[in-house]
Design a protein around this nucleic acid. Sequence first.
DNA 1: AGAATAAAGGATGCAATTATCCTTTTTTAA
DNA 2: TTAAAAAAGGATAATTGCATCCTTTATTCT
Lengths: 144, 144
Amino acid sequence: MFSKSCEYAIKAVIHLCIETKDGSRLSIAEIAEAIDSPEPFTAKILQTLVRHDIISSAKGPGGGFYIDHHSKPVFVIEIIDVIDGKHAFERCGLGLKECNEKRPCPIHNEFASYSRKLKRLLETKTIQDLAKGIISGKAFLSNT
Amino acid sequence: MFSKSCEYAIKAVIHLCIETKDGSRLSIAEIAEAIDSPEPFTAKILQTLVRHDIISSAKGPGGGFYIDHHSKPVFVIEIIDVIDGKHAFERCGLGLKECNEKRPCPIHNEFASYSRKLKRLLETKTIQDLAKGIISGKAFLSNT
DNA sequence: AGAATAAAGGATGCAATTATCCTTTTTTAA
DNA sequence: TTAAAAAAGGATAATTGCATCCTTTATTCT
């Protein structure tokens, strides 16, 4: 469904959302540990998210990553767009370039309603919504 | 959504279904050409489908691949199971190993209802159903 | 039986995604 | 103003999915 990068990205932002409510910051190491991801790879993803203004970062001692709770909430789709590209959802089930409403591939109609709904969901759901449903951030975001 | 192999497999079986109704057979070259896929790679996929009894093949002159229209219809999910594995649908949206109903990941519930529906659809839909909806096999299965 | 045809299967190459390493830049604090 | 902390960024490695090549086996037809 999504790339590994995208999975890490979503997990990381949820984690940040929960842990930096109080204005504190998290280092790459802390995030990677919490979401069970390789540290240097996670660093790259976090950088991308910062560049696209989805999360914030501060260099130097006491620095780290955080999300600014005064700015607008983060829609899940924003992360997907930035990491996996805008067209992650528009792809035809059979990978046909020329598949569309007028000239649908054999399973176009079967897929279309499914992916449309899922996309709409991710367009309306925010990371903040997801964070609310989590009791213990660590437990639910790690793999072990 | 599905792997390239799986896309080719679905297209190939649809094409076979349409073109071998009369008991004729198609060579790898003919299939690859029709569905716009690399020939040797397609050969591998067809082999796998034969091994799993989804399609049939005959060696030697006049041989090729075909689907036996006297045997039971092919459910789309069968192809997916064989090529991408049985768990292609059970994977959690965030790639967590330990995500399940009892211990759902943040987006588990959001995904579950949709992938359940899609899975059910592919469990009931047959290649024969899909073939019916196609007027010109070539035109709809190739990329160009 | 022998030649031609076509799939089967093993071994290998290539490219994208995933992951790692190392150096540079910025910031804080002593 | 120097040392340490921490992210940023460039270069490189490993893994995996995708694709190709070549030899072998089975079948048909002459």
